[in-house]
Structures are given as structure tokens and as C-alpha cells.
Nucleic acid binder design. Sequence first.
DNA 1: GGTAGACCTGGACGC
DNA 2: GCGTCCAGGTCTACC
Length: 303
Amino acid sequence: MPSTLTLQTPPNFCLARAVCSYGYFALAPNQWQYTGPKRCGTFHRPLKTTDNQTIHTIITQPVPRKLLVKTAQSLPRSQHTHIKSQINRMLRLDESFTQYHRLAKTAARDKFARLLRSPTLFEDIIKTMTSCNVAWSGTIRMNQRLCEHFGADNDFPTPAELAKATIPQLKNKCKVGYRAQRILKFARDVHSGKLDLTQFQNPKTPTDQLHDALIKIHGIGPYAAANILQHLGRYDRLPIDSETIRHFKTVHNTTGSITQITRAAQKHYAAYHPNQFLAYWHELWSAYEKKSGPTYKKSTLIL
DNA sequence: GGTAGACCTGGACGC
DNA sequence: GCGTCCAGGTCTACC
């Protein structure tokens, strides 16, 4: 028998905005369905219980300040807190963006800041690895196949599930290419306890220290590290990639070498410290929506 | 410290 | 349909 959970949201929280302001909403096993202007949309996402059972959930926002979570399977009351904490992480319900919104009035108006992330840091890091050096369509495909072939009940694979894979399996079934070795090493290091991901989630650790630790993971470079830092709630680094360069060339008419454009970008967002990433992402996302229409009205993201 | 080339895949393009 | 080229971020070897 299905269960229903409720969560209180911060003021001005908008589920559609929170889910559809970061590309991960289009990556498996996440699924967003636009249901029209009245109820806006539903977010489908399998989550794990403490004993590693997969629970399929459907999240809606029927009224302001309240989220409704319906589970496909019966969920014991003892599991409610665990499921809620994963939703809390995904939608960043605990974070305050008052300081950023004070400076960024348009972002405040757009209810923009709570960028979707995964229930676990492990999934965020693998998703980041699959977004490097590949077209967005490739990232979508890799995540779809990782869930299909290695995740229980089409959920995203856990470190244990992925650690059992082999490099040829990852290459042939998931088409992750040369990333296979990096993904597998990361999964096995996490599974064996050699790499403790909880160390990255200590709010007292300085961002520089976190960045240095992330860079030490095989397959994580400057772009990926900055991207993972924002998943950790650190917004003072810019993940400079080809998209950033393109954005600055076309929107800001910036010219010069990549190093010069990178410096121009850092200078441009410096006023938003320590939330430079949010300012950058809001600008990028707004430019995309201006061109392609509101993202929350779509079920996927075409770049 | 800076730089070139390799790593893989899929899409675009020409034939 | 086939072959070629290109884009994408990180790593490694080399200067």
C-alpha cells in the first residue's frame, strides 16, 4: 500500500524552479513531468531506504510551502526521516539564499538558487564525470545506461553495485568510453572505504581544502571540482568550460584567449562573492530559457 | 609551469 | 552507407 509523506518548504520555494534549474533533472533516474499551468509538474525519483531497498517516489507541490511525497510501495514510518533527508538534499531545503537574493534581485524574482542535486554526493560526482568531455546527449545516455544495467530497479547504482562492474562492461553497456576506468576506481574506492565522502560534507572545511581533495580524485579536474563544490553548497568557484567561454563571447562580447576570458568571467561575478556560481548559472540558465522557453515545461533538456 | 597529444563517443558532413 | 572530422575535460609525458 502506497505511503504519503509531507515536507515543509522554505518561503518562496517553487518545486518546478528547484528541479528545472539544473540539467540533472533530465538525467536518469530523475524524471520531471510538466502537468500544466495549474499544478505545474511532478518529480519522479527512486530513493533508497536505510536497508538499501529502492522506493519509487513522486513529489509534488500542491500548495505553497508544502511538498507531497507519494511512494509506490508501502514505507514503514521508521524510514520516513531517511527518505525526507534525501529529498531535502536534492532540493536544498535547508539552505538559505537570502544573502545572494539581496544582491541578485532578478534571481530572487525568479525564485532561482536551489539547483537540483542528487540524493548522494556519490551520484553527483559520477554525474559530473559523465558530463566531462562529451556532448550533453552523451551524458543523458550514459546515466540512462548506468541505471538500466547496474542500478537496482532502475535506480542510480550505489558504490557497491558499481564496484562489481568491470571496465569492458562499463564501456560496452554504458558507452562511457575512457571514463570507465575512472568511474570504476572511484566506485571501488568509495565502496572499500578508501575514499570517505563524508569528509567532503563537513561545513567547517575551507573551500580551498575541499577543492584540493577533489582534484586528487582520478578524473576530477578544475571544471569538475568547481562543479562538485557547488553540489556541496560552495558557490565561490566558477566551473569554466567551453560553454562559459561561448557565453562570454556571445553575450558579453568578450574577446581574447581562454585565460583572458576566464579572468573576465571571474571579475564579472566577483561582486556576488561568495555566490559567484549562482550568479553565473542564473545568467546562463536565463539565456538558455530566453532562447528555448521555460525549462519546467519540458521533460528533458536539449542543448 | 606550460603545452601537445591521447583518451572515447556520437553527431555532422561530404561523398 | 561509409569514412572523416570535430567537440568535449582530464591526464600524462615532455620541454
